[in-house]
């Protein structure tokens, strides 16, 4: 029983290590929680497809400047 209490206490301490975010308005807080939830675990499931979509859109907008931008980035190490 004592071990369970200690573990429960540890879990609660971990969960309340920081105060939950409050953005002032309930709908903003709710939107923030909904948006950030998928980023807390396995963010790349969302990030990679979005990055490909953005890359394609940027390519359509910039054209040959996009290729120059990538070349510049490749020189950037």
């Amino acid at each position: 029983m004592k071990a369970i209490n200690t573990r429960l206490k540890q879990s609660l301490n971990r969960a309340f290590f920081v105060e939950p975010n409050d953005l002032g308005f309930w709908f903003l807080t709710s939107l923030f929680k909904k948006t950030t939830k998928p980023l807390k675990t396995m963010p790349f499931i969302i990030v990679i497809p979005t990055a490909f979509f953005i890359a394609f859109v940027v390519y359509l907008i910039l054209g040959k400047w996009f290729i120059r931008l990538v070349s510049w980035l490749q020189y950037g190490f």
Binding site: A51, I54, A55, F56, Y59, F66, V70, L73, Q74
Partner: peptide, 9 residues
Amino acid sequence: SILFFAFSL
């Protein structure tokens, strides 16, 4: 270029 940009992003 698209692949590299998406990777960097």
